[in-house]
Design a protein around this nucleic acid. Structure first.
Length: 495
RNA sequence: GGCCCCAUGGUCAAGUGGUUAAGACACCGCCCUUUCACGGCGGUAACGGGGGUUCAAGUCCCCCUGGGGUCACCA
């Protein structure tokens, strides 16, 4: 037996954003291809022109690039089996349809939608599977010609096997047997002159030499249809692997009401692509050796389709958040700075072409904040006070740290002693601070907390002295005096 | 409704006839500490139910229950 080069594909339809379930399916395909030295094909299933849109096509492409899922053949880059958008392959489908028609493997059907609907409803009522009756299956060539000549519009159906059984050999589930009576003569060609998904997909898999079809569980029931389709086409039957679905926390199908469901939404929520792809790997697969944090390179090594679970997984945003914070913490400051750059620029926190010194300072803001950031948002919204003095002070903080009678005076004194910290580093600042605390007979927190609140307006944040070093002496002094003034005003207002 | 798939803690998930039933997230407690995080230590928590097979069943078989999918001129 000749060992065949692995060729897999992911075929999204551009009717919306790339779903995380789709992203995981794509990733598993990609991993399988990379691991086996095979080819990963990206194909766009846009036969449904009314629902497909250029915008969502673009969004899907962007999501793939963002996730780092590169394709070996597909839109934008081409390949020897192109084109890779089904809307551009119509002539090919038509050709295959003609062939199948000539071989009598497909036949025209003139039943109206009303007839079919009635049939279906009756079957439903009688407790039978709502299948096509086969009304037009018996039509002779002459009868077909007659109807066509009369100008009747036709759809085309596959002459599916009516007896025996079809065995789906699935790499994850083993052998799944379907009774062929369950497969009806499904439509392969619509009245509007375009192929259905089942037809286009199988023709493409055949023509593109796809060896393994790795797709979501929901297609398992469709597989005997596809096998019948491949047989009609005279195509080899690919290997199948149906991976379990991703469910919402209430075990229902994931939908908008469950929050973020698309790759794009996670990107906008400040999730790193490395984190999302890592989390996706953990859904339905266990890398083994108690590994949870697995980067792409290692994932390629560890991935094994046969070890994919059989049951659906519920996605857990908390764990995603944990994975994400790991990647945020271990990322290089420059990388993170690049990621927040646009946002910072938009807020005028930085300029388009900073000099070396300015860049170093921006980096220091990242450095001091990244350890306690869990996502990119934290690095965008949580760093405002480095760029401008706080507009207000945390209410609870004020009650707790600004109410002692001596606070106002302590803050002014602190502003003064900062002159002694030379150079102005976390180390020297702390030394000056500790000395002052000792002189005044204070407890550390009695000075540290009011200072933090004065400088950032917040009660939480990085180590105070690190934060002060980043802010700089002048800024610290101004903010401390401003806070002291503010406290003074509050006292007057009360009186 | 017919057919198909699935079933270990709240969630992800090891486990392939003999284990004190891993680990991670989350949660709780303690420690570290100027705050918040991080980190460290510890804890609560699971084989859906019922029948078999076997010396022995989370692991094999059957039934039930539950969940999911599919049966379109959507993909």
């Amino acid at each position: 037996m000749i060992e065949q080069r692995v060729r897999v594909r992911f075929a999204p339809s551009p009717t919306g954003a790339l779903h995380i379930g789709g992203a995981r399916t794509a990733y598993f395909n990609w991993l399988f291809a990379r691991k086996s030295g095979g080819t990963f094909v990206l194909r766009i299933d846009d036969t449904d022109t009314s629902r497909s849109s250029e915008a969502s096509y673009q969004q899907i492409i962007d999501s793939f690039r963002w996730l780092g899922l590169s394709w070996d053949e597909g839109p934008e880059i081409g390949g020897e089996f192109g084109p890779y958008r089904q809307s551009e392959r119509l002539a090919l489908y038509r050709e295959e349809l003609q062939r199948l028609l000539a071989e009598d493997k497909v036949y025209p059907c003139f039943c109206t939608q009303e007839q079919l609907l009635a049939e279906r409803e009756k079957a439903q009522k009688d407790g039978r599977t709502p299948h096509y009756s086969g009304h037009c299956r018996q039509l002779t060539r002459e009868q077909q010609e007659y109807e066509l000549a009369a100008g009747k519009t036709a759809v085309y159906r596959l002459r599916a096997p009516k007896s025996g059984s079809t065995v789906v050999s699935d790499m994850i589930r083993g052998e799944v047997v379907f009774n062929n009576e369950e497969i009806d003569d499904f439509i392969v060609w619509k009245a509007d002159g375009t192929p259905t998904y089942h037809f286009a997909s199988c023709v493409d898999d055949y023509k593109m030499g796809i060896t393994h079809i790795i797709r979501a569980d929901e297609h398992l029931s469709n597989t005997p249809r596809h096998i019948a389709m491949f047989q009609a086409l005279g195509a080899p039957i690919p290997q199948f692997a149906h991976i379990p679905m991703i469910l919402a926390p209430d075990r229902s199908k994931l939908s908008k009401r469950h929050g973020a469901t698309s790759v794009d939404e996670y990107r906008m929520a400040g999730i790193l692509p490395e984190a999302l792809i890592n989390y996706l790997l953990l859904l339905g697969f266990s890398p083994g050796e108690d590994k949870e944090l697995v980067e792409v390179e290692q994932a390629i090594e560890l991935f094994d389709l046969r070890k994919v679970t059989k049951h659906a997984a519920i996605y857990d945003v908390k764990k995603l958040a944990w994975v994400n914070s790991h990647y945020i913490h271990s990322a290089s400051p420059d990388y993170l700075l690049a990621l927040v750059w646009e946002a910072w620029l938009g807020r005028h926190w930085t300029i388009a072409n900073p000099n070396r010194e300015q860049l170093a300072w921006l980096r220091s803001v990242i450095v001091v904040m990244q350890e306690r950031s869990h996502n990119l948002q934290d690095l965008q919204d949580g760093v405002a006070y480095y760029f401008s003095a706080p507009m207000q002070y945390d209410v609870k903080g004020v009650r707790k740290h600004f109410t002692a009678p001596s606070t106002q005076e302590h803050l002014r004194r602190t502003a003064d002693i900062l002159q002694d910290a030379v150079p102005f580093t976390a180390h020297t600042i702390e030394r000056v601070f500790r000395r002052f605390i000792a002189q005044q007979g204070l407890k550390g927190g009695e000075l540290i907390h009011p200072t933090r609140l004065s400088l950032s307006g917040l009660t939480t944040g990085p180590g105070l002295f690190d934060m002060m070093a980043v802010l700089g002496r002048v800024e610290c002094r101004q903010r401390l005096l401003a806070a002291a003034d503010w406290i003074g005003q509050q006292v007057e207002l009360k009186v």
